[in-house]
Design a protein around this nucleic acid. Structure first.
Lengths: 181, 181
DNA sequence: CTTACCATGTAAGGCGTTACATGATTCA
DNA sequence: TGAATCATGTAACGCCTTACATGGTAAG
């Protein structure tokens, strides 16, 4: 009932849209979900086997491809399980920013160090923003081609807005550190 | 050298400012760090023992109090270890929002469900913002009383800015779901 | 007197990453 | 032919949360 393992739900969510291999699931996650959810092969492959054994998905070998591909398909059971989880209240939204942790203790290491962390943070965000903008463009254009795109766009907009705010905060933080208020 | 356990660093960071008991460490974390870092007693107490055995902190019983209190103090070694960690580049900033995950798969459960999650998210943020504003006021007023406050304020400002952005996104998301773009 | 909070710790178990191990295929 | 990428999986290990276990004290 409760205790839905998140990795199962993410995989089922991706499978609800299309058949995928474990490798492709990882790619999809890295492309679209990495800003708010991540997973490694070491959790994906065991989870896939587990989903099959619980009747949430089926596995078949891809005979077309020359490669050793295992294609996974969601079952009706799996779809119901996914929908049930989606209808349950969110249990946890968690942010773990080591940058903020190091900044919080900045008095121990001094302003120079704090500035280095802020600039590194800024750089990382500036590098990632273009990918989000690109996704925004693609999704906005294809909004009516696929009903799911509206929901994807929602999360992309979240990323863009928060990242832009991060950049504003970086500027403000630099000012505060420089001595002014 | 590398592989600094974060829980050790957080504890040392808190101890660098003042002597504390395990219980107080938890309180401090819940009050000031919970927005970007969390920890349970089950990780704090073992970590404290470990820090003592590695010479990063010392432990003494509080004889003044009637209670069974163990007071921890950072050592020079501990302070060096902390400073070293603070000078190292950030390894990972991670955001794990189940809300965004459920929204991403929103096409499976429909608009009504998506709206429910957005409203719940909005409510949670609205409830937490006042605490951040309160911290902002206190810290701004006492900025010159303690050099560390500047750094605390930095993280509080981050929280306020991002939370405000979250609320704006909620509005926008509701509009997008309502059918418009 | 009883509830809330102070205070410390352990044990089990879950969850997931990293590293390892292996090998095929595509493309330059 | 060599590098990059496709492709699947396992094992060890680390880290943390949850639940359990215990008891003192302050305040109403």
């Amino acid at each position: 009932m409760a205790n839905e393992k998140k990795i199962d739900c993410v995989i089922l969510g991706l499978l609800s849209h299309e058949e995928l291999t474990g490798y492709e699931i990882k790619k999809r996650m890295d492309a679209a979900l990495k800003y708010f959810w991540g997973a490694s092969y070491g959790s994906i492959y065991p989870a896939l086997n587990d989903l099959v054994s619980r009747g949430m998905a089926t596995k078949r070998e891809d005979t077309d491809s020359k490669r050793n591909k295992q294609i996974y398909t969601i079952t009706e059971n799996g779809r119901e399980y996914l929908k049930k989880w989606l209808s349950l209240p969110v249990e946890k939204d968690e942010l773990r920013y080591e940058t903020l942790l190091k900044l919080f203790f900045g008095n121990e290491s001094g302003e120079k160090q704090a500035l280095i962390h802020i600039e590194a943070f800024e750089k990382k965000i500036e590098e990632e923003l273009p990918y989000l903008f690109h996704a925004q463009t693609i999704l906005t254009q294809s909004l009516h081609e696929d009903a799911a795109h509206k929901y994807y766009l929602l999360t992309v907009e979240f990323g863009i807005k928060t990242y832009q705010t991060y950049l504003e905060w970086c500027k403000q933080a630099r000012k505060l550190l420089a001595g002014g208020q």
